[in-house]
Computed example of a mutant assay.
Amino acid sequence: MKYYVLLLAVLLSVGTGSAQAQRKSKVKIKNGGAPVSAANRLQPLFGGISVAQAEALVGAAFLADIDRSFSSRPEASKFFSTKGYEYFTEGKIDTARYRFNLAWLLDQKNPDAYRGLGVISSSNPTPDESISLLIQGLTVDPNNALMLSDLGASYLIRYQQTQKKKDLEQAMTYLQQATTAAPTNAQTWQDLARGYYYQGEYPKAWEAVHKGQNLNIASVDIEFIGELQAKLPDPQGMFK
């Protein structure tokens, strides 16, 4: 699982099949009828409450300050999602989560609100919540390369846990779309290599490894290289 910690590193550098996956896999986060409280501030998307409930939670005074300080709420949303990433990289997870929630509240079409929350949720024991959030992000920005990459990596994590072929297929679909949308993302190539490894496509796995290596040598996971070498020696002879 050490390999998949690199999913978080993507934050620092994600067709028909995709649309079908979104319809089948989307799992909305629900409040379940529980009373709205301050605790909702630190739950992804405010715990699934409505926009109106979330507005009431943050307060009319806060929203009035936003409207005075920014030319539009989408502009304010981008500000808060940017701050969310900054707090995340500083390790201030609760603060980052609340900033991403505010970004969502101010603009439900801001993909970074969903992606930021999805990346934070990737540290959960299972990737289900992260997958749900990232899929919702793709509904507003279907060609977001970082979102596609993160989602593919999340499905790889779930495949490792479930060993279900459909999870691996979803992972490969998203990762291949991500490399098409952003072919210079080294980490996506390494995740794709891992997917090919699981499929037993070892020559393709090596090809993806080298593509990622050529972009950024730091993206190479030496532990994975050892696993791949045990199946097929490096055809290029660079790893021995």
Rank of each mutant, 00 (worst) to 15 (best):
V140W: 01
D150H: 12
S130N: 10
A76L: 08
E75I: 10
Y155I: 07
N124R: 12
D167H: 01
E75H: 05
I131M: 08
Y85K: 13
A96Y: 02
E169A: 13
N124D: 15
T82L: 11
K164I: 10
K92C: 06
L106G: 01
A145H: 09
L138T: 08
S123D: 10
K164L: 13
P127R: 02
T139I: 10
N144C: 11
Y159R: 06
L148K: 09
L134K: 00
E90F: 14
T82A: 12
I93S: 04
I93G: 05
T89E: 15
T162M: 04
S123Q: 11
G84N: 08
A61F: 12
Y85D: 11
E90Y: 13
A64H: 14
L63R: 01
L146N: 13
D167S: 01
L168K: 00
D65L: 11
I135S: 02
Y155S: 03
I157S: 06
L105V: 05
A64F: 13
D65F: 09
P142Y: 01
A56Y: 05
N124H: 12
G84E: 05
T89L: 15
S130Q: 11
G59V: 09
L105G: 05
G84F: 08
L106P: 02
K164A: 15
Q160T: 12
R99Q: 13
Y85F: 14
L133I: 10
A153F: 07
F100K: 02
S72L: 04
I120C: 00
I135T: 10
A76Q: 07
G59L: 08
K78T: 10
L151S: 00
W104C: 00
L138F: 06
E90G: 12
L102Q: 02
L138R: 04
Q108S: 14
P125V: 04
Y155Q: 06
D128E: 13
F70W: 09
I157W: 08
Q160M: 08
K165D: 11
Y159C: 06
R115W: 01
K83A: 12
I131K: 03
N144L: 13
I157T: 13
A153N: 00
T139H: 08
I120V: 08
F79Q: 11
S121H: 02
Q108L: 10
S81Q: 01
K166L: 14
G152H: 02
L63M: 13
G152T: 09
T162G: 00
S77H: 07
T162N: 04
A96H: 03
R99I: 07
P74D: 05
G137M: 00
K83D: 09
D94N: 08
R99T: 11
Y155G: 00
I93M: 09
A153D: 00
D167F: 01
A64E: 15
R97E: 10
G84I: 09
N101L: 07
L105T: 00
R97H: 07
R68I: 12
A61R: 15
G116M: 04
I157A: 03
A60F: 04
P127T: 01
